[in-house]
Design a protein around this nucleic acid. Structure first.
Lengths: 115, 115
DNA sequence: TTTATATATCGCAATATGGCGATATATAAA
DNA sequence: TTTATATATCGCCATATTGCGATATATAAA
């Protein structure tokens, strides 16, 4: 039960869902996520911890960067199912489209940590 | 997005999940749900509103009782998917088992509003 | 070692959430 | 109409959440 509600709670915040939708396309460092979402760094860091505690993302250090990615081999059936759904869900969301435009701008300026 | 996060938030509380798991077996009035969950009536009523706003349950009046049931024809793809998952998920949960025992007792005493 | 950059953590403020009891409302029965 | 029962809503309190800036920590470069 706790494991299930933890995943649901992680998915109940729009900014965290935006992070997951971003990570569908590419693995990202905190600073880029911060830039796309226009949130304070500390706020993003906390959201990432919530997502990681729910088993939805995992991280890896690359120098000074912490690269986050969607968890591949889920230990949680709930997380796995929800990530699978999110591949299709919200694909035509207007808000997310805006965020992707921002992402494309950053990529043009080659300010992406991981290319 | 809002529709999605509303469903996720509704599912992020253990008591609300318990209600949904109960409703899998039979439609129930508020007073019985209150009895199974051991919560104040006002608390149950608010949880039911949250679930209904998320499109997960719907209600029907039968005399003085309000009978709640899982929504059949979901207008929301998210709600439909989650209710489908919940048919299988948490089936072996210990906490839920306790709640079902309580339910069985009530049924023995024929205190169930809807039989 | 010092400096710079990236990230995590802490403390605070505003708001949301979930519990309750009291009360309002609606229906059915007397 | 009065009474009883079921449910919804309101107000309150304790706690959780989410935002931020400030600060601690970790790595890389100078």
């Amino acid at each position: 039960m706790k494991q299930f509600t933890r995943v649901m709670k992680a998915l109940s915040d729009p900014n965290r869902v935006r992070v997951l939708k971003l990570l569908q396309r590419e693995n990202l460092c905190v600073c880029n996520i911060q830039e796309f979402l226009k949130l304070a760094q500390s706020t993003v860091s906390r959201h990432m911890k919530t997502l990681e505690d729910a088993g939805l993302v995992e991280h890896e250090r690359q120098g000074t960067w912490i690269i986050y990615r969607l968890t591949d081999n889920q230990e949680s059936v709930y997380g796995a199912a929800m990530l699978a759904h999110l591949e299709n869900w919200l694909e035509d969301d207007k808000e997310l489209e805006q965020m992707r435009l921002k992402r494309d701008q950053v990529i043009e300026n080659t300010k992406l940590c991981i290319t």
